[in-house]
Design a protein around this nucleic acid. Structure first.
Lengths: 344, 344
DNA sequence: TCACTTATGCTCAATTTGAGAATTACAATA
DNA sequence: TATTGTAATTCTCAAATTGAGCATAAGTGA
């Protein structure tokens, strides 16, 4: 969007007039492409140069209204060009556009980022593409609580948060910070809410605890290869991409409960334990096995195929398939999370 | 965004390069401002000219990175300029950018629309502003089922949908259409899902049943003042604004269940019946009174003030207030909808 | 055959729904 | 003042759902 003479006709078919013409905005389409393999949620990243000199980024490209009929189609084009991947399930996440956090190198162009979540089954990345799958918890390590609170949480995050809280000189600010830290990270009266992924990342960002905070404040002082993961606070990503990743994971965790999204990540047939492990990997907590099975079976989300999977290490498990019909039956069919009192 | 020589440095601080420069995009900020008064959900609309010659529109304006530090702040500025209103609760809804549906009058500029939902207590519109509150169900009449299925549903919508289904010559298309109509409008095996507001509007749009469909197809043939409400299918709004309204209502209905949003719409103290009526107005269905009370009270969402509201027409009701503390206690405190099996 | 591992089935108490009856408190009216 | 109407508020009760665990089944490898 460039400055030029205002033209009332330009914007609308109707008689509405836009009072002022804006300066310079660029619209980017960004994809958080998620898969779960070997009980680990992964994200597809790209990197255009030598891996050791560049930060990983999510696949992205600018919206081109000439080529892209819709935003989502534009996204698919970019993803295909950069990773060779054809996306099935795609959903829009959020549009980011803070001036402080998404300014182009010219310091004048605002980079508007429309972020998407895509779910796929992990595949080998096609020839000729440098894209790579990486574990999501490499970037957001505090989000994985399947084996209880991770070690780095107590050793690094909690103390750093406490320091941040006490760094406030004003009493009211300190109180406000403590409350916010309690809610987002589930200390004090509040419990851990697995969906508040973005809140947690944002808090760490504001507290200056992730590499991106420093980079955005002092772009000059932080050339790309100067950005290094800080121990315990996860690896950084290019641009705003860790924020997008956090948004994606939070949305996915929430939506899992009322939409049958997991099945986008699983093969056509799967055992109930595979299903459970996939959900656990995403939500980052362990679930009660028998109750989980009861829920998905009673919810008629799956049906047995009669076939058995013998490689379980124990008794062979029956293979199930997703019953697509539920989409036509109930309003909000999700996997439901036994042991997780709504919202956890 | 204007075509100009590609400059790798323009876009990123890092070494990423955007392969192609896009053509022309304009970013608009649009606000669906919702209030509930007298048991009726309302939306704030603006209209720049004589009311009888113009369609109502939502408050909106272009993003101006010079003046607006963030998208949300830009939205607040526009809303304030156009309506005199200061917004409290604001949340981003969705970014729309279909080329077919949001092209400027020049036929070349894509109008990207970033839509927001805002919740307020209804107020008199300030002097000097032409903004007006209008009932939401004037635009989406089929969404109000508080008195059962509305009359126009059986008389107009259902037959029109059936016609649309049968208009498909190919068998598979017909089957697919019927399935979609069943899911979104809750016929056949499917139940009415109050959250699928957008799906329903989109289906009516695609079926050519709302005024906007024709307008977008034949802009020339449908000058603004030629767009007239079609009986039973609700009044049209300018641009894509009815779609934004549908998105807003759907989001609000969903979020009500797990976040205490209703209280943004209520005065500081209120009776439990007022609370219930407000929820009902938004969700568009009636709730079981005793169970509703049980839920909000057991959920500790509210606390009694001891004061009584005598003007109930019967026994005076106790006045309650929202317990802000719940935000610090439980992960997902919503009003819960008794009688509504999750997702309804 | 035994030890081990995982799948699957089943039980049971505690809670949470869904629905409605019963009781209370005020206003208006006979 | 007694009666009637309208809501508010309290209770009850059966049905369904959840949370937790025990028991049994069916494979594998030693």
């Amino acid at each position: 969007m460039h400055r030029r003479p205002t033209n009332g006709k330009l914007f609308l078919r109707g008689p509405y007039r836009l009072p002022v013409m804006p300066r310079a905005v660029t619209v980017g389409l960004h994809a958080a492409i998620v898969a779960v393999t070997e009980e680990e949620p992964r994200i597809l990243t790209v990197s255009e140069g030598a891996a050791d000199r560049r930060l990983a980024a999510l696949p992205f490209g600018p919206l081109d209204p000439d080529r892209h009929r819709t935003l989502e189609l534009g996204l698919r084009v970019w993803v295909h060009e950069q990773t060779g991947m054809e996306l099935a399930y795609v959903e829009q996440l959020y549009t980011f556009g803070d001036r402080d956090r998404a300014l182009a190198a010219d310091g004048r162009t605002l980079l508007l980022a429309v972020a998407y979540l895509a779910l796929v089954r992990e595949r080998q990345v096609a020839e000729g593409h440098t894209a790579a799958w990486q574990g999501i918890y490499r970037f957001l390590p505090w989000e994985d609580r399947r084996d209880g609170e991770p070690e780095m949480f107590g050793s690094h995050i909690r103390p750093a948060l406490a320091k941040w809280v006490n760094a406030a000189t004003e009493n009211s600010v300190r109180h406000e910070r403590r409350g916010r830290a309690d809610i987002t990270f589930g200390s004090g009266a509040a419990q851990w809410d697995s969906e508040r992924v973005l809140d947690r990342y944002e808090l760490l960002y504001e507290a200056g605890l992730v590499a991106e905070s420093a980079r955005d404040k002092e772009p000059a002082a932080h050339a790309v290869d100067a950005i290094r993961p800080e121990v315990g606070f996860g690896a950084p990503l290019a641009l705003d991409h860790r924020r997008i990743l956090a948004t994606a994971l939070g949305r996915l965790r929430g939506k899992l409960k009322y939409r049958p999204l997991v099945f986008e990540l699983l093969p056509g047939t799967f055992t109930l334990l595979q299903l459970q492990r996939t959900v656990e990997a995403l939500v980052g907590v362990r679930l009660h096995k028998q109750n989980f099975r009861r829920l998905v079976e009673r919810g008629s989300l799956v049906e047995g195929t009669g076939e058995l999977e013998p490689d379980t290490g124990g008794r062979p498990a029956e293979l199930f398939r997703f019953r697509r019909e539920v989409l036509h039956e109930r309003p909000a069919p999700g996997v439901g999370l036994p042991g997780l009192p709504a919202g956890q």
